[in-house]
Each structure stands twice: as structure tokens, then as C-alpha cells.
């Protein structure tokens, strides 16, 4: 965070807080903050595009997203007027965009802009980073991208922002502390970056959920792959956008240098989180059934692993 801005905002916040109190909006604001969690995975905006999945390649991140979302009927199919949106990129690592360890900032920026064009009230962005969160937010370029697009960059480093929820039908993961924005936002857009992962094989859509919970260690301790699949049933994103512009092919998920990264210039978008990961696996040169959690999620009926059963729009720019 820009220090000067920090202090400026701190003062502004005080003023804003005071103003809001005097207007008597306090109750409303607080009440509006944490409504009952929306647990029905299919309760998002219901309009279905003609395609189950859009795969696009050879463009720049923002252009590809524009084109892809257009073929799903535009952002208005996902974000309605005055809705709150949470965009969850991968901002796990203190690395610049060239290292491909964090989601592409240009992509995040465009998604936020699209959300606002569709009438979104507020777009929140956060990740429970692995490295120290302030440097992750800053050096990934995502903080700046979010600010430029008018979104709200939310720190996720405090346990007090996480609420304990039951994970129904979870085989290993029975409960988890989930960030309140995932619970309270109307629309959840999952924007992972496709990377290699030392033990899980690849990381993309489902594994990106690990940045929405407080205690990741529990997952690692308690059958990582099963926990990933269990949590995927808890709150399905309304939209999954897979950033495969720069793809870390080995030494993931953090990588060591730019040598680990290839320029794939691809993007996938779909509502189906299992299909998102299955297509990601294919892009990565492996088969979905070889990635444990994809198979487990498929077997639990959370989505489609067999891409031949999906209507896919393949776009080359």
C-alpha cells in the first residue's frame, strides 16, 4: 500500500465513519454487511449462455476476457444491477506478474470494469495470501489494477473476518472458516491462474478456494485432495475464469524464476468448476482423471470432467 495514501485514507475513513453515524445509517450498513450465506450453488444469476465453456487463445488477457464473456451473453448474465461481487484471484505469492504465480492483473482489472458496467454496486477483491499479504497485493500488481478499476482491495489477514461454516456432505472437511465476503457477496467470481503444483499436480479453479479459508494447514493435514473436492461443493463460484496467459509449468505453485513460465496466452471461462479444472488439466498437458481432486469432485457430482459432453466455444484471436 502506498503509505501516503494509507494515512490519507485513514483520516478519510474516520470522517466517513463519523458522517455515516450521524446520518443514522449504521444499522443498515452493518446489517447489509453479513447477510445469511447463500449456500445454494445454483442460485446465482440464472441466464444460461449457449455454451458450457468458452476457451480462447492468442490474445491479451483483457481482450480475451471481453470476447469470452460476450460469447456467454455478456457480464449482465452474471452480475445484476446493484449486486455485490467478490472477485477471488490467486495473490498467494510475492512475485511480479512475469513469474505467473499470481493471477494476471490486467485480467482482474477488466473483470472488475465489466462488473461495474453490468451495474455492480461494489466489487471486492481479496486473497488469503501465502507470503506476507501486503507485498503480495503490491508486487503482483493486483492492488493497483483493482484500484484503477474502482474495486475494493480487501485485506484477508485477520481471522476475525472468517466465519465458521458447516461443509455439508464433506467427506473429510466438515467445517471451515470462510472469509465473510465469500458468504455475503451476491456474485462470486473465481479467477485463478493455471500453474503446476508439487503435490496436487496442477492448481486452478478448485484449489484457488484455499485462499478463501483461514486454516489451510488443516487441509494439508487431512487429505488435501479430498478437502479441495469437499469445499468445492460448499460454495460454487458463479463464474470461473482461468488465467492461462502465463503458465508456470514446473516448480509451482510459487516457482523459482521466469524460466518456469511459458506464454500460453489462453483463457477459459465457465460456470462449471469441475469443467474449468478439467479443461485446465488438458491445457497443462495432462488428463483430468490424473488430478485427484478433479476426479473426486466429479465423482461427488459437482460438475463435468468429460469435456466431450460439454458445448465448448473455442475461439482463436
Amino acid at each position: 500500500m502506498d503509505r501516503r495514501e494509507f494515512f490519507k485514507k485513514t483520516i478519510l475513513a474516520g470522517v466517513a465513519a463519523g458522517a455515516a453515524m450521524t446520518i443514522g445509517n449504521l444499522g443498515k450498513v452493518i446489517a447489509g454487511k453479513v447477510p445469511a450465506p447463500d449456500l445454494n450453488p445454483n442460485s446465482g444469476p440464472s441466464a444460461q449462455g449457449p455454451y458450457d465453456l468458452v476457451a480462447i487463445k492468442d490474445g491479451e488477457p483483457a481482450q480475451m476476457f471481453d470476447k469470452a464473456i460476450e460469447s456467454l451473453g455478456g457480464m449482465k448474465n452474471f452480475v445484476k444491477k446493484n449486486q455485490t461481487v467478490v472477485v477471488k484471484p490467486n495473490i498467494g505469492w510475492d512475485t511480479p506478474p512475469e513469474r505467473g504465480a499470481d493471477t494476471n492483473p490486467d485480467l482482474i482489472k477488466r473483470i472488475i470494469q465489466q462488473c461495474y458496467s453490468a451495474g455492480a454496486k461494489t466489487v471486492y477483491v481479496f486473497d488469503n495470501s501465502v507470503d506476507e499479504w501486503r507485498v503480495c497485493y503490491e508486487n503482483s500488481g493486483i492492488q493497483k489494477a483493482v484500484r484503477d478499476a474502482g474495486g475494493k482491495m480487501v485485506p484477508a489477514n485477520s481471522e476475525s473476518n472468517y466465519q465458521l461454516v458447516e461443509v455439508k456432505n464433506g467427506k473429510k472437511l466438515k467445517q471451515a472458516k470462510v472469509h465473510e465476503l465469500i458468504l455475503s457477496s451476491d456474485v462470486f467470481i473465481n479467477v485463478p491462474v493455471l500453474k503446476s503444483h508439487g503435490s496436487a499436480g496442477i492448481t486452478a479453479a478448485m484449489k484457488n478456494h484455499m485462499g478463501t479459508v483461514w486454516d489451510r494447514r488443516f487441509w494439508h493435514r487431512t487429505d488435501l485432495n479430498q478437502c479441495i473436492a469437499d469445499f468445492a461443493a460448499y460454495r460454487k463460484p458463479d463464474l470461473n475464469v482461468i488465467d492461462a496467459y502465463r503458465v508456470m509449468t514446473n516448480r509451482g505453485p510459487k516457482g523459482v524464476s521466469e524460466d518456469d513460465v511459458i506464454l500460453m496466452k489462453s483463457l477459459l471461462i465457465t460456470r462449471d468448476i469441475v469443467a474449468a479444472d478439467a479443461a485446465s488439466a488438458k491445457l497443462f498437458g495432462t488428463e483430468p482423471e490424473k488430478i485427484s481432486y478433479i476426479k473426486l469432485a466429479y465423482e461427488a457430482g459437482l460438475g463435468t470432467m468429460d469435456l466431450t459432453k460439454l458445448s465448448i466455444n473455442r475461439i482463436k484471436m
Binding site: 485513514t10 475513513a13 466517513a16 465513519a17 450498513v29 452493518i30 454487511k33 473476518n161
Partner: peptide
């Protein structure tokens, strides 16, 4: 700071972050 941060968050204001 953390108490302030929590209060500001109620007003959808996130620049004052909490520290462990």
C-alpha cells in the same frame, strides 16, 4: 488499530488493515 480497522470495515472501508 485492529479495533479501528474492524469499525471501518463495517462501513465498507478497508484501508486500515489489522495486524496480528
Amino acid at each position: 488499530n485492529n479495533v479501528l480497522s474492524r469499525i471501518f470495515q463495517m462501513f465498507d472501508f478497508y484501508s486500515v488493515y489489522s495486524v496480528p
